[in-house]
């Protein structure tokens, strides 16, 4: 009885692992992209304040 259950569990878990490895985490990628873009464009948590056109940028 126990052996039978273990066998089924294994049979189900194994393909699940394979599926996970090739699955692209779209939500995580979006989050990562947002973080990097905010850093590169220096957007402060969503407020689209342009750091450009304010006189001479980063002169000092």
């Amino acid at each position: 009885m126990k052996n039978w259950m273990l066998g089924v569990a294994f049979a189900c878990v194994l393909p699940a692992c394979v599926t996970i490895n090739i699955y692209f985490p779209a939500a995580a990628a979006e989050k990562a992209a947002d973080k990097i873009i905010d850093d590169v464009w220096q957007l402060k948590n969503g407020t689209e304040k342009p750091s450009v056109n304010v006189g001479e940028p980063a002169a000092k």
Partner: peptide, 15 residues
Amino acid sequence: GTLFLPQLVIAAADL
């Protein structure tokens, strides 16, 4: 649990 939990964990994980 073993079938679906790993998928949830992966989905919540960050890159």
